[in-house]
Structures are given as C-alpha cells and as structure tokens.
C-alpha cells in the first residue's frame, strides 16, 4: 500500500513538474506548480513528516504560488509562441543541466548519501519541538544566511519601487 502510494505521489509530482516547464500559458504552469507542491507534501506525509508537509502547503502552496498567480494576472502575459532560443541563455542552461547531471552522477556512483536504516534517522520533520531545536542549534547558520538573503531582497525591492519625489539635489 505504502509502496503504491509512494509511486503514485512521485509520478504525480514529476508529471506536474513537467507540466510547469512545458506549459506555455503562465497560469496553467502556476497551477501545475501548485499540484506538484501538493504531491511533494503527500510524499512528506508518507515519511511521517506531517509538520513539513503542512508547512510546505502553508508557505509555498498557500502563499508563494498565490503570489506567482497574482503577478501573472497583473502582468497579463499572453501565451506567446515559444520564443526562439537565444545563444547565451541556451548555453547557460546547457551548463546548468550538465552540472545537475554531474551532481546526480556523483551521488549515485560514489554513494556519499547517508544510507542509515530509516528508523535510525531522526525524523526532524515530524516533531515540532525537535524541529525547532534543530533549527536554532545545528542549522542556525543557514537560517541566518537565508534571513539575510531575504532581507537583502526586500531592501532591493523597496529601493527599486520607492519613488523619491523630493528635489533632485536634496
């Protein structure tokens, strides 16, 4: 049963992720992204990581994709015929694809992934307290770095969108 559900959710996630890339209509793509996130949440539930699953739904499905849709609606992107590929973006994406393949290949061939038995892995996503504790001890640095990143992004948006209506020389 669990096995079947895993394959079901995995296939669902991958299929809708493919839909995100393949769809020319931006709204359809955003909806596919939403479905894909729901699929990932389902996978988390299968790992007993209810907390992560619901956080994923709350933050990404509930807010981030909604903001995407919001922007798409405001910009009113027409579903154009796919633009012809320019040289530089094509080159960059080929490089990125190669890097991704190389990274995956390294993981698969060298076996660097910790493969402890499942019950030995602490289920960080399952327990609220444990999760919070880890966030504020082991993973404090990444949390801080991400916080700063978000702060920088926010400042950038404020600087870009703020209109200074004072005198020019002031």
């Amino acid at each position: 049963m669990a096995q079947i559900l895993f394959y079901l959710f995995a296939a669902f996630t991958i299929a809708s992720a493919a839909g995100v890339v393949a769809n020319k209509n931006a709204v359809n793509a955003a909806m596919c992204l939403l479905l894909s996130l729901v699929g990932v949440a389902g996978l988390f539930v299968q790992l007993d990581a209810y907390l992560l699953a619901f956080l994923l739904l709350l933050v990404y499905a509930g807010a981030v994709v909604a903001l995407f849709l919001f922007i798409v609606m405001l910009l009113d992107t027409k579903s154009r015929a796919s633009a012809s590929f320019k040289k530089l973006p094509m080159f960059a994406s080929l490089v990125a694809f190669g890097l991704l393949l190389a990274g995956l290949g390294t993981f698969v061939t060298r076996g660097q992934l910790e493969s402890r038995p499942l019950h030995a892995v602490p289920a960080l996503g399952a327990n609220l307290k444990l999760y919070a504790y880890q966030l504020f001890t082991t993973y404090l640095l990444p949390v801080q770095v991400i916080g700063f990143l978000l702060l920088i992004a926010m400042l950038g948006v404020i600087v870009l969108s703020k209109k200074y209506d004072g005198p020019e020389d002031a």
Partner: peptide
C-alpha cells in the same frame, strides 16, 4: 497533532 497548522495550511489554499 499538527491540528491548527493543518487548518491554516489547507484553508490557505
């Protein structure tokens, strides 16, 4: 156990 979080997460959809 995640009661309220589930309510928030699902209703945010």
């Amino acid at each position: 156990d995640v009661g309220l979080l589930a309510v928030f997460a699902v209703s945010s959809l």
